[in-house]
Amino acid sequence: MTTEEHTARAMVEAVGIGRDFTVAEGRFPRRVKRVVPAVRSIDLTVRPGEIVACLGPNGAGKSSTMKMLTGILSPTRGSLRVAGLEPSRRRTTLARRIGVVFGQRTGLWWDLPLRDSLELTRHLYRVPAAEHAHRYAELTELLELGPFLSTPVRQLSLGQRMRGDLTAALLHNPRLLVLDEPTIGLDVVSKATIRSFLARLNREEGTTILLTTHDLGDVERLCERVVVIDRGSVAFDGGLDGLRARDPGSDIETVVAGLYRDGAARP
């Protein structure tokens, strides 16, 4: 395949994207502004149907990268296309093509029963009623939402809420699902449910999934490809096997920890 075709078909195509923040330091009269690169330069291509996990220590630039991919944050440099669009310019259109879940907070409405939240999502994403009904029934069954559909979101357990969030993000049938720490804080059973659901979604519907995580269990269960981000750059991009091969004697956690340390040792 030629490079052009490849580009046209990629779900995420990031070339050298970076984001600088200006921080002011010191007390008022002597404030000095300093430019700090949160993300230096990231190259990332995600092809349709892939599941890619983004790893990296806290503060490595994962969240900023995810914010750029979803159009929340505009990049300082580089070129970026997600689902064929430039996120920062076409944020609203992009929102209809991708699904986004932030594990740390909910995309549902805190005070509304889950059912109302999902119904509202359908309207905001303009999903036709028949298509919605089909998809809603399917997701409700797969994620076993039935028992708590009429519970206000704030009363749901973390695991229930995450299942609700996933449903809301998938009702409009996006081809790309972006998940920021989807299993954070979940118990073993909830994690397993979420993982097998994501694997099935990818296998049966071909949904491309890009997720960030600190949980290597997510990676081992779900992903063939791992991207390690450290200090705002890509420190590793390749298969799980490639990651293991870097240090055949150790388990995967040690390898990843070693990658973080390497990064920290860099000037």
């Binding site: 979803t70 929102a95 209809r96």
Partner: peptide, 14 residues
Amino acid sequence: RSGELDTMLVRPVS
């Protein structure tokens, strides 16, 4: 501060 604005920004609604 709570990050809710980010959640609003990923919806296709103003």
